[in-house]
Structures are given as structure tokens and as C-alpha cells.
Design a protein around this nucleic acid. Sequence first.
DNA 1: ATACATACC
DNA 2: AACTGGTATGTAT
Length: 589
Amino acid sequence: MLTFNDNKAGMGGLDKEKITKVIEENTSASYSSFSKKQQSRIDEKVAEIKNRIEKATREEKQKAENSMKNLEIKLEASRDLSRDCVCIDMDAYFAAVEMRDDPKLRTIPMAVGSSAMLSTSNYLARRFGVRAGMPGFISKKLCPELTLVPGNYPKYTKVSRQFSEIFMEYDGDVGMMSLDEAYIDLTEYVANRTEKRIFTRHRYGGDCPCWLPRVPEDEDIENLQFEDSECTKCSKNRRAYFDDVEFGVGREEVVREMRFRVEQLTGLTCSAGIAANFMLAKICSDFNKPNGQFVLENDRNVILEFLEKLPIRKVGGIGRVSEAHLQSMDIRTVGDMLLQKALFPLCFSPLAQESFLRTALGLPGRPSSSDPRRKSISVERTFSPTSDFQMLCDVHLEICQMLEEDIRKAGVIGGKTITLKLKLSSFDVLTRSLTPSDTVSSLEDIQKYSLELLEKEKGKEIRLLGVRLSQLVFEEEKKSKTITDFWNDAKQQKPLSSPEDADEIIMMDTRPCPICGADVENQLEILNRHVDECIQKMTDEESPELICISVETKKKVEKPVVFSKKRKIQEKKPAAKKVATIDSFWKKE
DNA sequence: ATACATACC
DNA sequence: AACTGGTATGTAT
């Protein structure tokens, strides 16, 4: 069984067999039987795929081949080699922040997380096979001297904001995929960048270990300027060295510059991938990790050559399961995907066919929803498995309270659909959902409806409860507005900028017409006339009572957008006897 | 509309 | 003792 993957950076050349053995030996019976169940589901699917290929008639195969050929022509026509896309990924992010702030952690194997679950490990720990997503107690078996550091999410969020501001200077529309991963479209910046830039570099040495980055031991420091001072943290002498560094023009130089600035600002290193689209840039960001960058030329042949030997698992969106499915058709590399593409229609849905073919051609995924707003909001918690209904109700209430707090903070009024998620002690996951006629909004409603769903599951032994709201209704712009609403907004609209950019704003002061979407000068009379004309045109074609405007903050990105959030968990005293409240999961070690 | 699965960090 | 949490999206019914 494939318990261990050495896919991640810093995990090459390990004793995979031994690591897998240690993991298996320390896996609980219930989890291991769950894994087996999952594996047999995959095996079943694999058998089905092989069977479909085998029993396909000659005509079916011919049809499949033609269909993929046509799709390939269509997709190839969409190839865009004009862009400079960058994916920047912080190196071992959470671990790096902890190491930065505690020098003792820099030289020992260490991971951020708990004995139940790790979120990141540093590179020393990775040498032992210790990696993100692994339970801490198993990591301790792999590496007994491993130090576990509890995560400090507010801090990681704060640092993430700091460096995303740098990226923002290069692409105002930077997409933060998570706290440690950014998607930057450099096309425009690179095109306008005609001059080199020079920065003063600060690096540290001396007895004080607190500050980063350090000057490398082997670097000749004879000619460097420096300044000594006493560190306020450790009271030792800190020597700060200065010199100038220069960055030229072109995308690689600009990316070096961004990475340099991130390190200067935060003391943390990152890696970058540069390519014609974000799908490729993401793959490239892994190639020279840590603290490196990799550029893939914007050239069709170079791209296809690069992909030819690339294991499919390196591609975003291909996980454990898809990998197994594709492997059953002798596909191990992206090059194999291209060779075997004619089989896709025999085994996969149209969407999956297209997505795999896009990957094989090095094209980005289909742009998804144009609405950048979040689609759902949820809270879930794991605890010691129990079937005690009262206990489950207590946990359930806390979850509902946290969810209610979250939706308020997120500017969400409520959601049309509420979903209860359960994980049984067997690790099987169930979801139960409900869409009442009214939007679910208040704590009372959230609790009432989800409890209704929970009651139907009485008796099950449960290890996780979650509640999710979807089909969200937002505070500001409710999902759709009537013409009257739009009107009132237009009347009340106030200048929304600071005085210093007032000039610019006046130039651009338009708003989209709610009917046709065209930009119209934002003066009531002009808007009025335009919209009247639009409505007139429209009512000629369809019935007027259907007019309901969807006001979207259209943001044409194919980049993911992050919705950052933090949580403070209220302490609650442990429930008397039984072990099962949420608190058991939060207690310190 | 509901349930379940897959993926990502 | 112990295998996460939040979100999006695809598939199937």
C-alpha cells in the first residue's frame, strides 16, 4: 500500500521501504483498515478502466481518437505564449518562521504541528521521512529527536501579508493561494521594466543569532561595510553588513528581485517558477527548491519536452487517485498522457478528458467561476470518537457558535444550504444537507437545522463533526439586486478614494450599467437616460418582470484567491468524565 | 438538491 | 493516546 510519497522537495533518496514499514507499524487498526478500503476502491476503478479499454470496439476507439484530435486542435488554438507567469512558494513556510524566531530550531529536525498532525517539517526532519500531513506521533518514531512546535497561525498570517505586499507592487492582482503560495502575472511589469534597480542589502553576522539573513560562512567579508550593535533580544553583539545588489531587466531578474526583497523583509526564503501560464509556473516552482527559481521558456517545443519526462503526480490537480487511474493505462509521465490521449474518452468524463489533455499540452486549466467570492464557509472539529449524543450536541453547539462568528467576520449574512459533516470512528465520512426555504442566518437557525440532521444519525460512533453553509448570501451586494436597489446605490454613492488620488478617480468615475454592463459616466442623469434606453431595448425582447440584476465584482482571474481567516478558540473547562469533548484535541502536550 | 469523492496547502 | 481543517470542484443520482 502506498502510505509514503517522496514527492515533496527535500525527500529524495530516502529509504522508502524502511519509512513505509515504520508508518505501517504505527498506524492504528481502524485507520489502516480505512486505508485498505480506500485502496480497494481505487483498485476497483482501475479494473474498470482496464476493462473498458479492453472491451472497446474498433469504432469506439476510432471515435475516441477523433474526438481527442479535435479537442487538441481547439485547445492548441488557445495556447498563449505571451505571458510571464510566476508562482512563488515559501520554503517550508511555517517551519521557517519558527526557525527564524528561535535560532535553536535551525539546526535540529523540527516540525510545526501536534502529535496528531504536522503541517510542515523543516529540511532536516525531511531527511527522516517526516513530512506535512503525517501524524506527529508517527514522525517521532521515524525521528525520535524531532522537536514539535505548535503552530502560530496569526503570526504566519501577518508575515504572509508582509510579503504579499511586495508581490502587489509587481502585480496589483496577485493571487494568494494560501499563506505561503502566490501567483503573480508579471507580463505588464516586465514589459515596462526598462531600468535596473539597485538595493542595499542587509545581512547579519556576529555572535547574535537572532537576525536573518546571515552572511554565509564561506563568503569573503573583508570589503563589506558593517555596523555593530547590541541585540535587544539576546544582548550579544550583532554585526550588520551592508552592500549593494543590482537587478536588471527581464523576468528572471525581476523574480530574483522579488525573492531578494522577501528575504530582506522577512528573513525567509522562497522558491519560484516562471512560465507561460500558472499551471506550468507551479510545477517549475518545485524544481529548484529551496531558495531557487526555475524558468521554462515560452516555447511550445521546450514546454512539451519539459513535460515529457515529468511524473504526472507533479501536476497540480493530479493526486493519489488520479495517479493510480492513469497508471493503469501505462501513464507515468505527462509525455505518456499525450501518447495515450486517445484512450481518455473511453475512461473519463468529458471534463476530465479535457483537463488531462490540457495538462498533456502544457495548457492552463479551464478558467473557473468569474465570481471571486467564496462559495462556502465551514467549521469542523475532530475529537475522541463517541456515540454519546449529549456529548455530540455539546461539540455541535460550539461548532455552530464558531461558524456564526466566522460568517459575521466574513461579511456573510447566511447561506441557503446547510451541511452537516460526520466522520465515523471508522474514518468514513458522511455529509447530510438541507436547503430550507429561508436563508440560514442566525446561530439559532444554524444550530436548529444542523441538529435536525445530526439527530437522524443518533447511535453512530463519531470522531468529527462539521457544519458548512453554502450558496452564501453576502452583506454588501446581496446576490442579485433589483433595479431599484441599484438606483439607490447610485444615488448614495460617495467618492471612495483618498484625496491624493482624487484626480485620477474623477477620470475613471464610471459604473457599469446594470443591464448591458457598459461603463457609463457616474452621473445620475446620464445613468438614468442610459438605463432607460437599455430597459427599453430589453423589454422589446423579453418580459420585464424577469429583470433581476446579478451584481458581481467581476475580476477576471484564473488565479486562486485566498480568504484568510484566523480563529481564537475559547477555552472551556474539560467535561467531567468522558474524554470526548473538543477540548481533548486542543490540550497542550 | 443531495451525497460522496478528490484535491490543494 | 494519537491520522487535521477550510475551501473548491467534480461526479453521480
